[in-house]
């Protein structure tokens, strides 16, 4: 067990000529809750997607739970087991029931027997408050319910770190709260979380640190009170003015 959850050093990422991440240095402590915001195209999604190597990087190092990510190595599979991810568009497997969605990865990658995987899945479905939907298919659920299933599915792998990539952006307004409440519960239980979101109330309520990105650079990071009430950077001031 390393003392830091995530250490990123000098991380650079290019899409062709486009410099998506510029010299990113970021250390995340265990149990820390971080909210990342910024204009679209600022690299915030790319940043969290490098942590489970959905995106590869061209320079720098990323260490997750003491394991250094090296392209294609066994380390990547190990890190992915310990890092859960929730997507904007849920990405549930549409041909599987809610329960099957939740038990697939634990059975295949953690080699957990079906009965045990199902018991774990039901426990987490209970926790995201949709135990009665276990036998349904994703298309039969509302967006908010689907996203809560996606959270439960990630939790079934017993991750140490959870990444959220704009988890409420694709939801109807009345469903945002149920997903945020689930995330707040998770934060209270001490999960290490990195959330890309524009839900500033959520950031104020649970974040230990808020990070503002622009053009691939971490422009400002601070505790929520200081971040929102006395932003130093001009671009952040403009950004906060626009979303308020």
């Amino acid at each position: 067990m390393s003392e830091h959850a995530i250490i990123m050093r000098g991380v650079n990422k290019y899409y062709g000529a486009f410099h998506a991440l510029v010299d990113i240095d970021l250390t995340v402590e265990r149990g820390e809750r971080i909210v990342i915001c910024g204009p679209s195209g600022s690299g915030k999604s790319t940043l969290i997607r490098t942590i489970n190597q959905l995106e590869t990087i061209q320079a720098g190092t990323i260490t997750v739970d003491g394991v250094e990510l090296t392209a294609g190595g066994e380390n990547v599979a190990k890190v992915r087991q310990d890092v859960g991810m929730v997507f904007q568009n849920f990405n549930l497997f549409p041909h599987m029931t809610v329960l099957e969605n939740c038990i697939l990865a634990p059975m295949k990658t953690r080699k957990i027997p079906r009965a045990e995987a199902e018991a774990t899945a039901r426990k987490f479905l209970e926790r995201v408050r949709i135990p009665e939907q276990a036998g349904k298919y994703p298309a039969q659920l509302s967006g908010g319910q689907q996203q809560r299933v996606a959270i439960a599915r990630a939790l079934c792998m017993k991750p140490r770190i959870m990444l959220f990539d704009e988890p409420t952006s694709a939801l109807d307004p009345e469903m945002v709260k149920e997903v945020l409440d689930t995330m707040i519960d998770l934060a209270r239980e001490g999960m290490t979380m990195l959330c890309v979101t524009h839900e500033m109330d959520f950031a104020r309520a649970v974040a230990d640190r808020v990070i503002f990105m622009d053009k691939g650079v971490i422009v400002e990071e601070n505790a929520p009170a200081a971040f929102f009430d006395s932003p130093r950077n001009e671009r952040l001031q403009n950004f906060l003015g626009q979303i308020a």
């Binding site: 087991q81 991810m85 497997f93 990630a154």
Partner: peptide, 29 residues
């Protein structure tokens, strides 16, 4: 959709499991 591969990858499923359990059943339809 590529999100299916991404979700399966993020769950640490390898190529064979991804194809067999996630991608091919959907492609078959």
């Amino acid at each position: 959709p590529s999100g299916q591969t991404e979700a399966a990858t993020a769950l640490s499923l390898g190529y064979a499991d991804r194809m067999r359990h996630v991608i091919l059943p959907q492609a078959m339809r």
